[in-house]
Design a protein around this nucleic acid. Structure first.
Lengths: 228, 228
DNA sequence: TAGAGTAAACCGAACGGTCGGTCGGTTCCA
DNA sequence: TGGAACCGACCGACCGTTCGGTTTACTCTA
């Protein structure tokens, strides 16, 4: 029978498919020749496929067979590129964590920005990163904590939440925010709204851009929805 | 050896534990005698345990053995009360869907409430229900869509989202909301903030009450965080 | 009131199937 | 021709579920 390949070729991407970041000639360990033709996976291009499937079916709901089908290769071939399922998860969440932490670093190093300015910047940048790294941040936000690797990701995420909450508390202490709201509660709500973007945002022409969403969030958060 | 019982008795609830809604004498099919003593599970009290574990480990990450351990009974005993794992999921999400739909029904039947009033009421009530039925709504919001039952739950949830978005659009059409925001985008953000409450809210004395959170959300959403 | 009978609640063992992962190859290309 | 990329077959463990049997709490009857 051997129906594997004929079933694969329809309904899921082969390496030549639309994923778009497989190794051709400009990838990490590119072939040295002038015109490399073979299209194969790199750990990163495989990660892109894997994270997409993880976000569709959930990490625990995704089998290695699911990943193989989506990638257009066999289950055993995946182990040529990565150690196993968990490495795909940690690589995915680390990409999100790195982007978020880098943004926070530059924000904290801003020499003489006002405390309110910094919070506004933090909200705006958070939405931007969330959209730029949408699948990876989505994966991070849905991590449950069933393994040691997942708990580590959760801990790193909590650290980021606390850095953001610190911005809000400083702005509140400086008197820039309304005083009838607990800053910790306000912070939860604001970044809850920010993070909820992963549940519905999808990029594409004719749709909202990252900046559209970022400025909408910033406007709602700081000035509210009511007409005035 | 038979270490089953001695292991169970520490670290997880037995039917006599703190779950609090097992059948004693006032439950659905109660014993007829004057002083029934035996404490057993009902489908509903078992559901309460199951939904808690589902929310901790994720539905796909929870095995029937996990549920049995948390309930203090064996895996096979669970099947005396429910048909299987999926029935626990559908019962759980339906409880959330029923509560949310009931609230929307009363809100839509409000005879002469202003369009802005209705949106404010919708936001406030949504947070209240979310807190009252916290574990069940949490389960609903995390459903992935891997089975037919899960996709049905997602469809019901989308219908609720659209009813809520309808309120926002009517208020916008009536000129009650700021005009520089797409009402559909505003609706996504507002109920994204509302739903994000399940990610961190935990009830308890000395903590925020449901109304604390509900009014905080309403204030931020309609008037913003900025001091004025 | 002793004891037979009943049905719900629960248990241990096992089922077929799927899981993540391994291994010994074969194919492809610089 | 050497090594990267990939494959098919397979492994032990665990999955959700089933099944036959036991325990428990209670009612009915002699």
């Amino acid at each position: 029978m051997n129906s594997q390949n004929s079933q694969n070729s329809q309904g899921s991407q082969s390496p030549q498919g639309s994923q778009g970041s497989q190794r051709v000639q400009d990838s990490p360990r590119a072939q040295t020749g002038a015109a490399a033709r073979r299209v194969t996976y790199t750990p990163d291009s495989l990660l892109e496929v894997a994270v997409t499937v993880f976000n569709e079916r959930g990490y625990d709901g995704t089998s290695m067979e699911d990943l193989a089908r989506a990638a257009g290769i066999t289950k055993s071939s995946i182990y040529h590129h990565v150690k196993g399922k968990e490495e795909l998860l940690t690589r995915g969440v680390n990409r999100a964590l790195d982007a978020l932490n880098a943004s926070l670093d530059t924000l904290e190093d801003l020499p003489d920005a006002g405390d309110l300015d910094r919070v506004e910047q933090a909200v705006f940048r958070a939405v931007q990163i969330l959209v730029e790294e949408l699948p990876y941040v989505t994966l991070l936000l849905r991590v449950r904590g069933n393994t040691e690797a997942e708990r580590a990701a959760q801990a790193s995420r909590r650290a980021i939440d606390q850095r953001l909450a610190g911005f809000v508390e400083r702005a509140a202490a400086a008197g820039a925010l309304r005083t009838d709201l607990d800053p910790r509660l306000a912070s939860r709500l604001v970044f809850g709204m920010v993070n909820s973007v992963v549940e519905w945002y999808r990029p594409g022409p004719g749709r909202w851009s990252a900046d559209d969403v970022a400025s909408a969030v910033t406007h709602v958060v700081f000035d509210g929805l009511r007409r005035r």
